[in-house]
């Protein structure tokens, strides 16, 4: 009886260890798979040309990913630029100022935003944001836009990123002991001074982590962006120009036109680039996080 019990214990532990190793290896497996399928194009074309050429003519064998890479960065940057201040202040209000009742009513609503399928954000973007920019914002600023643009995609993406950042930042702020706030308040600081100089400083590593999470989501978001960004394989000159981010390129074309030589390989290379960009971004932010933590504590 006793033996069996111990055996079960061992098996359970080993099995779970196996699962952990497997999921840890998944990233490498996926990366390797992508690399393997992207190899044909990498063998023929120099990597520098693939990454930095703006010429995208698959039928002629030109695969320049530069517009797509830049499009991805533009859309993500616009989204984060909008999302960070808004969601940070929302989270600060809910955590530091709001009455318990307001917080308990609002927080679930915000979490609900995260559960809305991205295709619905896409439709909403097409119906609301795109016309808004085409008919109002662009003429108001004296330029022309079809509405399908970096800015539209960025706005919709920002709204999709809101709940992620807000949720994490609220958690982070709640984890800061009240005594720390009291220490500042007891010195005669106002609430805003306390938030600005103490609470946000203490929460900085967590806030960075929240933003990273949001950025990662924005990088990879496909459906909504595909519907709104305009999908023109040209370098965007301003936020009112269309863009063609990597995820949209892959989702739009994979499975079609695969008779074109190297097209399949090129799209998998695009996936690999996207993966590397997101991974690289995560590593970079991890390094920043460690440095911040070391500096303040």
């Amino acid at each position: 009886m006793n033996k069996k019990r111990l055996l079960k214990d061992k098996i359970a532990a080993k099995f779970m260890l196996g699962l952990v190793i497997f999921s840890g290896l998944l990233v490498f497996l996926i990366a390797f798979g992508l690399y393997y399928r992207a190899k044909p194009i990498l063998d023929i074309k120099p990597l520098g040309q693939l990454l930095f050429s703006s010429s995208w003519r698959p039928l002629r064998g030109d695969f320049g990913f530069f517009p797509f890479i830049i499009g991805t960065f533009w859309v993500t940057a616009v989204a984060i630029f909008i999302a960070v201040p808004f969601s940070l202040l929302t989270a600060v209000y809910l955590s530091e100022y709001a009455h318990k009742l307001v917080r308990e009513l609002t927080a679930p609503l915000i979490d609900l935003l995260a559960g809305i399928p991205s295709v619905i954000y896409g439709i909403w973007g097409v119906l609301v944001v795109v016309p808004l920019i085409k008919n109002h914002l662009a003429p108001f600023l004296g330029t022309f836009s079809t509405g399908y643009s970096v800015l539209s995609a960025g706005i919709v993406l920002a709204i999709m990123v809101f709940p992620v950042i807000i949720h994490v930042v609220i958690e982070v702020l709640r984890s800061i002991p009240n005594e720390l706030r009291d220490a500042s308040l007891a010195l005669g600081a106002t609430k805003w001074q306390t938030v600005k100089h103490v609470v946000l400083l203490k929460a900085l590593p967590g806030i960075v982590a929240a933003v990273v999470l949001g950025v990662s989501r924005a990088f990879g978001e496909t459906m909504a962006v595909l519907m709104i960004a305009g999908n023109v394989a040209k370098l965007p000159g301003s936020v009112f120009d269309p863009a063609y981010p990597l995820p949209a390129l892959i989702a739009n074309n994979y499975g079609e036109m695969l008779s074109v030589p190297l097209y399949d390989s090129a799209l998998l290379l695009a996936s690999l680039i996207l993966l590397v960009v997101v991974l690289g971004f995560n590593v970079l932010s991890r390094i920043i996080l460690i440095r911040i933590e070391r500096r303040i504590q």
């Binding site: 009291d182 220490a183 400083l201």
Partner: peptide, 24 residues
């Protein structure tokens, strides 16, 4: 001036902790 049960230094340098009050 309040001293709590456990010390809660503000997340900044020793200097800035003392200077915090006068600064605000």
């Amino acid at each position: 001036g309040l001293l709590s049960q456990r010390p809660y230094p503000l997340p900044m340098s020793i200097y800035d902790n003392v200077a915090y009050g006068p600064r605000i």
